[in-house]
Amino acid sequence: MSQQVKTDPRKQTVGPIYLNEMPTIRGRDGAVEFINDVFRVPITPTRMRTAIEARELPVYKISGCNYFSERDLAVWIRSLARPAVHRGGDAA
């Protein structure tokens, strides 16, 4: 008899293809919480506000509130990644 191992879905790697493309996340604070919890990326409400104002990610206005899609947030987070620069020497 095989045992299935239950894993916490928040601890699994999530790719954009598996994320919802419908705008279901309400508000800046909801988007920040989703990014921090699901992607485990430390984004602040101030950074999110800057991204919204600079139109760095799609925002959907529904009934006067801002909504975001999981997929758009994942693409935006990936766009923020920069490769580490190795400057030589023996530094770790």
Rank of each mutant, 00 (worst) to 15 (best):
V32P: 04
V32R: 01
E33N: 12
E33H: 07
F34E: 04
F34P: 01
F34D: 07
F34G: 03
I35S: 04
N36K: 11
D37S: 15
D37K: 15
D37F: 07
F39M: 11
F39W: 03
F39N: 05
F39Q: 10
R40G: 09
R40E: 13
R40A: 13
V41D: 09
V41K: 11
V41F: 12
P42L: 11
I43S: 10
T44V: 06
P45I: 01
P45S: 03
T46D: 13
T46G: 12
R47F: 05
R47S: 14
M48E: 01
R49D: 00
A51K: 01
A51D: 04
I52R: 11
E53D: 12
E53G: 08
E53M: 11
A54I: 08
A54K: 15
R55S: 13
E56W: 04
L57P: 03
P58M: 06
V59Q: 11
Y60F: 13
I62N: 07
I62E: 05
I62R: 15
S63Q: 15
S63L: 13
G64L: 02
C65I: 06
N66W: 06
Y67T: 02
Y67H: 14
F68S: 08
F68L: 05
F68Y: 09
S69N: 05
E70W: 04
D72L: 03
L73C: 10
A74H: 12
A74E: 02
A74G: 07
V75K: 12
W76Y: 11
I77L: 13
S79Y: 03
S79H: 05
